[in-house]
Design a protein around this nucleic acid. Structure first.
Lengths: 109, 109
DNA sequence: TAATTACATCGCAATATTACGATAATAATT
DNA sequence: AATTATTATCGTAATATTGCGATGTAATTA
């Protein structure tokens, strides 16, 4: 079928999966890492940096924006993107909460 | 096209994206959360718990196994699955390293 | 050995993702 | 107003993912 049965799962599970999906592409990881070190950048910078077409970068930026990880502000003729620190911490906690649920002490099998 | 241009990115970026893809489905999150609280379980438990078909659960288990997050050991006629603590910590670090790269102090835009 | 139990794999249909050329939209510049 | 620069959106082709019935496989039991 190809359609996820979201009604079978909790809101938290669906939310974490949706966020993880945004991290599930190396171009979006690369964009985030570039934003971390550059603090902010425009679409054209990323086209230069990553070697993907402008339309493709724009599409990845939209997905990052839709999940709230980045924000864009119009800066003259271009759009300045940067990480949203609030959302960033929120997403960090989402993953953290899953990981700390399994303490490494318990060697089961 | 539909095929990711992995050659444009670093091994680390591709690895993190590949791991994130495994987390990018609520059923796999649910399986991991179930394993955290139950310590170990068999395929049939998850079919009962999640309400997906046996073949579907088996497929999700394979993806979790392929990335190394879980291990399965034959237990009579069934297979006992549990989280691999070593790999779990490794994956936790992969995400952690990305998140701590952006300290929340820097309010940019 | 035949039947049973539990899981993996195959094959398929429905849907989603990825990449990009073409084109539209918006703001600055001439 | 026309041009330029930058980004967003549309449409499309190629590929990937999701879910499940059907079938295969391996170990246990009758």
């Amino acid at each position: 079928m190809g359609v996820t049965k979201t009604d079978l799962f909790t809101d938290q599970q669906n939310e974490l999966a949706k966020v993880a999906k945004v991290f599930a592409h190396p171009a979006r990881i690369a964009i985030l890492e570039y934003l971390i070190q550059a603090n902010s950048c425009i679409n054209g910078d990323l086209v230069q940096e990553l070697g993907l077409a402008q339309a493709t970068i724009s599409q990845h930026l939209r997905e990052l924006k839709e999940i709230g990880l980045i924000k864009g502000s119009i800066e003259g003729v271009s759009v300045n993107y940067c990480i949203d620190p609030i959302r960033w911490a929120e997403v960090q906690n989402l993953f953290q909460n899953l990981f700390i649920g399994f303490p490494k002490i318990s060697g089961c099998c």
